[in-house]
């Protein structure tokens, strides 16, 4: 039997030091890690429980932004009045994810670190380069309806399952990382996640001696924010495609926009191409369609997921129309 040791961290820096030992992992809400341990996909020898660290606060930043502590629960972030009024896309994204029970447990940092829902990742008898590097990708040539259409590789076509991270990507969030030596670095969320390449088991730039301590949201772009999630049932289901959009429009012309997709890639997919196609363009369906074509230009279907390309375009168009409408 795989036994493991457990400690409850009371000090942030000590927690970072504790996780540096081989085989150690952080645990917070455990909504993903415990499943993965039961299914023999992850088998840490030591768990450092960081859920009680003093990282639960949501604080104002001097520049008018917000700092969300890494241990703030998803349900608390979603319900925070400052988040709801200034970053409604984030609140909508959080509420659209998982279930009430899971959101009460899940932490902000844990949500960022959750792993793919690819069924072959969960099947220890199947080849999966992410779970077992070098064993191949059973999803390629297999049942790949929920898989990536952008940025995938021949090693891995898995998607990142988070809704929250998609909204944060459109909101230009930065991830705050603490090292054991006490130093802190900030990484833009788009740089935090990696594309699969030939090392799909390495999903982020987080170092072995680092811990996520918070997420920094800059003051929001003026304009309307929308998070739209498309899924096979009304609740408790991961996105087939989701779109987070922030659009600044002025008298029928889009001045600036932020666009991120979920469910389409190994990471929340920021589309600078779509944003460029929107800037200084009239707020019309033709513009949205052009932005959608730009965003999906490199998209590749794998068979079952071919439909996601058109679905992503249509979802983006409608989301942009909503975000640009009557603002």
């Amino acid at each position: 039997m795989r036994s493991f040791t457990y400690e409850r961290a009371t000090d942030t820096r000590a927690a970072v030091a504790a996780v540096a030992q081989p085989g150690a992992r952080f645990i917070s809400g455990g909504t993903n890690l415990l499943d993965l341990m039961k299914l023999d996909i992850e088998y840490p020898s030591h768990l450092v429980d960081i859920s009680r660290l003093p990282l639960r606060e949501i604080e104002e930043l001097p520049d008018g932004g917000l700092r969300i502590g890494a241990q703030a629960r998803n349900s608390d972030v979603a319900a925070d009045p400052r988040v709801r009024t200034r970053y409604p896309a984030l609140s909508e994204a959080l509420v659209s994810g998982a279930s009430g029970q899971l959101r009460n447990k899940a932490s902000t940092g844990g949500n960022l670190m959750q792993r793919t829902r690819c069924p072959y990742f969960y099947d220890t008898a199947a080849g999966c380069n992410k779970r077992n590097p070098g064993s191949g990708c059973a999803a390629i040539g297999g049942f790949n309806r929920i898989h990536a259409i952008l940025g995938a590789s021949e090693s891995c076509i898995a998607t990142h399952p988070s809704d929250m991270a998609v909204a944060m990507t459109a909101l230009d969030a930065e991830i705050e990382l603490l090292r054991a030596d006490g130093s802190v670095r900030r990484v833009a969320i788009t740089d935090f996640y990696r594309l699969p390449g030939d090392t799909p088991h390495i999903e982020t730039v987080l170092g072995d001696d680092e811990m996520i301590t918070g997420v920094l949201l800059p003051p929001p772009l003026p304009g309307r924010q929308v998070y739209r999630k498309v899924r096979d049932r009304a609740s408790y289901e991961f996105a087939l495609v989701s779109v987070a959009a922030v659009v600044s429009a002025d008298r029928g012309t889009i001045r600036e926009a932020r666009v991120a997709f979920g469910g389409v890639a190994h990471k929340p997919w920021r589309s600078v191409e779509a944003e460029d196609a929107l800037t200084d363009r009239p707020a019309t369906m033709d513009t949205y369609r052009a932005a959608a074509e730009a965003a999906l230009r490199g998209a590749v279907g794998r068979g079952h997921n071919d439909f996601k390309i058109e679905l992503a375009k249509r979802t983006l168009c409608r989301t942009l129309a909503q975000a640009a409408g009557a603002s």
Partner: peptide, 25 residues
């Protein structure tokens, strides 16, 4: 329930992959 024709295994063999209606539906 989807069979992977290469192995004969059901691919979506849990309630995350085999969808049934939830209250929201």
């Amino acid at each position: 329930a989807v069979v992977d024709p290469r192995s004969g295994a059901f691919v979506n063999r849990d309630f995350a992959g085999y969808l049934v209606p939830v209250h929201g539906d």
